[in-house]
Design a protein around this nucleic acid. Structure first.
Lengths: 119, 119
DNA sequence: AAGTTACTCAACCAGACGGTTGACAACTCG
DNA sequence: CGAGTTGTCAACCGTCTGGTTGAGTAACTT
């Protein structure tokens, strides 16, 4: 289910530490130890964070001590989801604006038919 | 802190029900009851979901029974974050590809004499 | 082979999360 | 006014999450 994947991706990025990890990995691959160094949490905690990112498909590694690498393709999944509804919403607002503009053209004193108005 | 806001937005969208609410609201505003109808969870649960979306700034309402409206601008926040690191990562991969291609041009047998380059 | 380094697994804990039910607040309407 | 509708608040429950520490595993170094 791709739906589930999207949930994991969003959940993974909901944590500031994990977003920071992604940000740093976008600049350069790095090992777990290197990644953990700047934070004042334990290495195990960072290792867990990386597992979450890995399960979401945002990150990969060839072996245990190999540098962690960002999988940038996953971003497309999010971007697509976002863009779809963003566009849809914006189009709707544009239609609303158009409607309001159209109503504006009519005389304010004698506007066109609300519900209480007999037709 | 805008950082915190981003966390709330991502966390809000990590839940499939909430993503579905956003999807439906992108098509049309709707009241809480209307929104709750299709799901087989209680109205209270949906009310809670809407509160999460509202706290994340994804959704707004003028009064209690007023239709819920999608705030599409928040999407920009996410899109910006994503694009930044996506681009950065892609550029890095391109540089890596270029480097690999360059290394490929040199004879494997001969050593690293790279002087005939004339671009 | 032994020792060190780098990382993960396991158990545990406090707090957040998604859901429930029940009570209540607020608006609409006869 | 009183009654019904609509939505929220509060308390509770089981599960997930982010953190800890301690032990174990895998891989380099000597």
């Amino acid at each position: 289910m791709s739906e589930d994947r999207l949930s994991r991706v969003f959940a993974a990025l909901a944590d500031p530490t994990r977003r920071d990890l992604v940000a740093r990995l976008s600049a350069a691959d790095a090992t777990v130890g290197e990644l953990a160094a700047p934070y004042d949490v334990s290495l195990q905690a960072v290792s867990k964070h990386l597992k979450v990112l890995e399960d979401a498909g945002l990150v990969s590694r060839e072996s245990r001590r190999a540098p962690v690498r960002l999988e940038a393709e996953v971003f497309d999944l999010m971007t697509k989801w976002i863009e779809r509804y963003q566009q849809q919403a914006e189009e709707r607002y544009q239609r609303l604006d158009a409607l309001l503009a159209e109503m504006q053209e009519d005389r304010p004193a004698r506007e066109t038919a609300r519900e209480e108005d007999a037709s």
